[in-house]
Simulated scan of single mutants.
Amino acid sequence: MSTNHHIQDRAVGAVMGAFIGDALGVGPHWYYNLNELHRDYGDWISDYTDPKPNRYHAACKAGQLSQAGFILALTLRSLVECGEYDQDDFCRRLDEDLFPLLDGTPVSGPGGYTSQSIREAWRRRVQQQLPWGQTGSHADTTEAIERTLAIAVRYAFQPTQLAAAITSNTMLTQIDHTVVSMTVAYGAVLALLVQGHPLDIELSGKLMGLVKDDKLPFHAVTLDDLQPPRPGDPDPPRAGRFASPDALLTPSYMAAAVADPAIPIEPAWKVSLVYGMPCAIYHQLPAAYYLAARFHNDFESAVLHAINGGGQNQARAILTGALTGAQTGLSGIPQRFIDGLEGGADLVKLAGELASKVKEL
């Protein structure tokens, strides 16, 4: 298998890992009481499950996608058909393919549940008839990551374009700059994994190198290895859009925690209790980075520990699934997860079409 074949395998693995994580969460989504989760699904969830009556996504069946998966597929089709990120095309698809299916309430639309930032964008766009660009809200969740991960895969070898496209897309629905910076950082991490870099203690240094080379828009005042600036040093010319590069440092700290035997998290699903079960991005990202570093060559363990942690386990599994799928490649994802995913073969084909555009420069 050539280097390019490995890249494409990892690119497809990243996208399919996200779809699988999404579908795994449809049944046991948002159980904050783990006793209730175990009552309804047993001590260990190992596959796609039906939602229980009167729960989130109650109209769905095991193996189907939630609305997050629907939007990821929409983003993927836009990237494939346009060949690159085209914001006008993406917005047209939201206007024509998603928003007519919504009514502005939480329990509506594809997957049976519409997230906060999408509801706010729908209100501004449909009810208030505001133009795109005036549709973002202050939701502090991972909803933008869940779709822009496809953009990260497309521009895996083009960090400047990656950052610009993810920033622009994110701000259609979420305008808090800390959330945007963390979303771009996740995309930059995913891109390096698609390239073939491991999620280890060296990864953040590689990301900081891209900042130093003006390829990622983060502001940094420290010298190499985070050493303090010297008296008289000018403010560095690499004044990025985001106030600090700290979001780029998180993955290697999580990898360091994995490698340190004095920091046990056992079983690994309890990472949700360490970093928090809620939806906010600052709870989700450390847990996803931890699981993807710990189970870098074991896709099944990574996504199942993400799911069995409860809370906002669907987002945790989407993020973990993409990061781990990018490391194992599609070839490392158990076939049963593809077979049990509704439309799985078609999604693999679509992901493959995106991956064909990902080439080492």
Rank of each mutant, 00 (worst) to 15 (best):
A259D: 13
L203S: 02
I151Y: 02
I281M: 13
G343I: 05
T173F: 12
F218W: 15
R230S: 10
Q158F: 06
D9Y: 00
I338R: 05
T173V: 06
A326V: 05
A317F: 05
P51L: 09
Y275K: 08
D339K: 14
Q8T: 07
S168L: 13
Q158Y: 08
A23L: 07
Y289H: 12
H5M: 09
E81H: 12
G240D: 10
S66V: 04
A152K: 01
I7T: 10
K349V: 07
V26S: 03
M182Q: 15
P231Q: 10
G325F: 02
L226I: 08
A259W: 06
L347M: 14
A306E: 06
D200F: 04
D47K: 06
L330N: 04
T105M: 10
D22S: 08
L149S: 02
T178P: 01
T160L: 04
V189A: 04
M208R: 13
N313S: 13
L291H: 10
I201N: 03
H138T: 10
L74V: 04
P53Y: 07
L76A: 06
K357N: 05
I166D: 00
I151V: 14
S108A: 14
R336L: 04
R125I: 03
H219W: 12
G344Y: 07
Q158M: 09
P286G: 13
L74K: 02
G310R: 03
V126L: 08
L98V: 07
A14S: 11
V126G: 07
T324V: 06
A256E: 10
A302T: 11
K357W: 03
G25A: 11
P28Q: 09
G83E: 02
Q335M: 06
T160P: 02
A259G: 09
P264H: 08
S168I: 00
R230E: 14
P334R: 06
G205I: 00
D246S: 13
P286E: 10
S244C: 09
A18G: 15
A345G: 14
R77F: 00
P278N: 12
E146Y: 01
P217L: 09
A268R: 01
